[in-house]
Design a protein around this nucleic acid. Sequence first.
RNA 1: GCGCGCUUAGCUCAGUGGUAGAGCAUUACCUUCACACGGUAGGGGUCGCAGGUUCGAAACCUGCAGCGCGCACCA
Length: 1072
Amino acid sequence: MIEIPKAYEPQSVEDKWYDFWVKQNCFTADPARVSEKRPAYSIVIPPPNVTGVLHMGHVLNNTIQDILARKARMDGKEVLWLPGTDHAGIATEGMVAKQIRKEEKKSKQDIGREEFLKRVWTWKEKHGGIIIAQLKKLGCSCDWTRERFTMEPDYVRNVQRVFVDLYKKGLIYRGKRMVNWCPATLTALSDEEVEMKPQKGFMYHFKVEVAKSAALGSATVPVADSGISPISSSRTAIPVGETSTGAGETPALPGPDGKIWLTIATTRPETIPGDTAVAVNPKDARYAHLIGKHIVRPLPAELPREQKLIPIIGDEHVDFEFGTGVLKVTPAHDKADFDIGTRHKLPLIEVINADGSMNDLAGADLKGLDRFKARKVAVEKLTELGALVEEKPYENNVGFSQRADVPIEPRLSEQWFLKYPAVEKSKACVEQEDRTGLGGTGYQPVTVGNLPTVSEASGRLPGATGQWPVPPGQKMRFHPQRWAKVYDHWLTNIQDWCISRQLWWGHQVPVWSCSCNSSEEFTKAKIAYDYLLVEQLERADLVVRPKGALEFTGESVSVSIRKIKEELGFSSFEEAIKEHFRRQTEGYGSGSLQVCIGPDSLEVAEKLEKEFGFTQDPDVLDTWFSSWLWPFATMGWPEQTETLKAFYPTTDLVTAPEIIFFWVARMIMAGYEYMGELPFRDVYFTGIVRDKQGRKMSKSLGNSPDPLELIAKYGADAIRFGTMRSAPLGQDVMFDEKDVELGRNFCNKLWNACRFRQMVGSDGSQTEGEINPTLLTSDDKWILLRLDQAIREVSDALAGYNFSSAVQTLYRFFWSEYCDWYVEASKAAMGNTEGGTRNAEQEKLKANKLAVMDFVLGHTLRLFHPFLPFITEELWHGMGFNRELPEDRGGKTIVFATWPKPFSEEERTYFGLDDAADKIASAKYELVSLGRSLRRELKLDPAKKLKFTLKPAGELPANEVEVLKLLLNAEAVEIVAQTWTPAKGTPSASNSLGELFLPTTGLIDFTAERERRAKEAEKIRAEVEKVRQKLTNPSFAQKVPAAVLAEHQQRLAGWETKLRQVELSLENLPEA
RNA sequence: GCGCGCUUAGCUCAGUGGUAGAGCAUUACCUUCACACGGUAGGGGUCGCAGGUUCGAAACCUGCAGCGCGCACCA
């Protein structure tokens, strides 16, 4: 550190040290080094989108992980922070498709699957490194030698392996279901990817005519008699007025025209052509008698009346208080309606295409229109027909595609579903809040208070990596714990996971099948089946599943017949036998072979494609279907690698609560299913980063600052510090650029404090000299005690994942305690003495003080390192604190310097860190503040150096007086004897150290002084009154603990003394 | 509708039974040889509201209100 710039310049420092760390393999984890003495600590990064860019959420999240990882290194652990990226199916595919559309005016279909995927890989090569480079800028200490990607070959094989396994276990199945369809990206989505948003729209009421029974043609759909349970049927017989609900006073009866009209409420009139029934609640007295009759569906208008007769059915699902109590049922376009349709075996009429446009069945008026345009037209049409009764503004919740931000279209389609594995275990393993405090399991939740103290923490935490398997009853903990409840709730109501996506970029479903549309194909399939049955004997990752007609070719005739009978509900075997033979001979068309093939049997797939005309399922898997394997799939699984053995299960997971279902819960299930163990022990959920108005940061709002710009402007340490400081435990983060500015200022303060140390000790010989306890002043002891306190607080805060609290302690300690008081006070021993030369004793005191400074700064840099990695490394070397340390303990880099420990009892005794010294220094600083206030309030010329007089309460060494003089910016502090009395009206202030006078003959504004003291007296009187009132309360003295009573009495005495002094000085004040 | 969280100084937040705090912002002053990305001093709060428990409540209990977030098939 030769030329020390006046201000810290992060730009010149950060890249230099990052390169150094990487070149020196500081972040590379070595499983061979893990031992009893050097436990493993691991985190897997929540993989960011490979083509994404860093945003404030990443900054928050990764700074926390880096703090944990760096702290663990300093604790002497072998640390693996495993980085990587996620292929992000929909997002990446969307970006590439958009680019192609823009640049070549082509769709992805135009260029074809193979070519498209090539383009995605090119895109990935180009943009994939961006976010990784950005994480490096932030200072993240990831093990880059282990960087992983969810689409790399090994990972792909793992995804396939898991798919085959779950398929084999019967947990993965293909089914025709109502799914959340995104008309923009043309794919199905899982329930988790749908976001409910309140939407302003209209509720339309339209009337339909109930057809007379005679009008019923044979073409109409019969009402399934299973639709109404006997109970509800009997309920319909209850006379009006006796229904317990009291709803529906009057049954709907024919009007003057002899017709019965029903009014139906809907928000989606465009789906009317898809209605196949209207439903009423069988308990609803208004309508129950109409069940079994039909209504005339108004749309499509051009259809003849008899083709638009749909039944009125009774279904408990209908809420008769909502709308009109009559529900139109569109089984093909609504989840609830689909269920009703299933219950009543209603036909399905699809009227909307995959892209959200209306098809031919929607009728001539709507055909080809977009669904929203169609809504308007449908309303116009209803109006024209005289069917529209009412149209009123209405707000309801509409599901939106999280990615494309367009309303979801519930749509019937064939998809792959997963029944989640290990649900019960996953549910049980997370510690739930114990409100009773009884702890039924016998397990004591480990809170911050129960964690080992700092000195113990250099060893292993209970249950940390290296102590697996976890003893029974020990659980995973969420921080803040309330998320455990959210997690539990989701698992309790868990639905099968729709894992297929109609995309190209991703893990293609490893299932092959053949078509059987002709007898030749059918025969071929039968041959293929025989071949596969043989292959299956030898291969663990090959599963053949015959469907339809082929299902029975491999079974005995009797099994087949029994199955058919069951499936089709035949009452006798006779019909089943007929069906069996029909299928055997002409069953093709309904048959197929589903073959699920793992990574080790791909040659079978090849053969199937070539020789039997099989094709692979075109769908890809949900991105989360690869992410949920992340903790172990990144460590070499399924091999029992050294990495996996040493670092799995991981120690901490840091992630956003938004992906608790998407990712965390699923990783836990996968962990149990494939590793037989939890994937991590503690999960820390960050807050959501919001702008200062409390709005979520988003691209569309443009309220998200670019972290890279902030880093360029303020430095990486600054953004880390600022973010951590404003991120309270478990709350959202209100981000303000001011926070980063504050971080920069802090770094600058740290820089300059070190610079000061360099300047006062420029002879360079005293670096980390031994501290001589006999030469320690009260200031020295005071700062050592404050440091000790800071170490405890920061260590505890980190153990409890309370990052903002840790940072606040550091801020207070360094800025207020070290810089404002200790450094200022130390100047008394540093500066040029007015007499010119310094004697030998002064030199000794100064040298000792420099040793104390080095001790404190050395500890401070280490305390700060996890938060401010760059500046601490720069100063660590610049100050030479690394010089005498072993290579692997801070000699080479602060990364491996040991985490500071609080003083032991022996050290306290050795340095003489007792209460007395602490109290003297504290009182001294307090008196300084009082003295400064005095001169300020007396409105004295600030430029003028003043003489103070001090009447000490006890013995006061000369060096303490020197400090007082300096801090008071006084010309002199004269010490006077107890017998000394000030001139009448001398302004004064006092505390336990003594009485401080400001003899200011002729200078003083007595009116101001009188005012000041009167005000002070009033304040004190109020305090006295407050305490006195408490003490005079008879029950107070009786019931309060002795210590509290004594404390109050002492307090009262203190205030009373103070009051007397002030009153006296007020009396002494001469008239103005 | 159910669940969760929040409400303390202008702002962001600490504070889980015993004297209401921090940082920022603000006001005044200071360019004193580490730092103006700085220093010194000051002003500023019926702790959302109403009850209750207690000698004592910002904190514990009950209710209410406002804000935010999840979950839920209400057309």
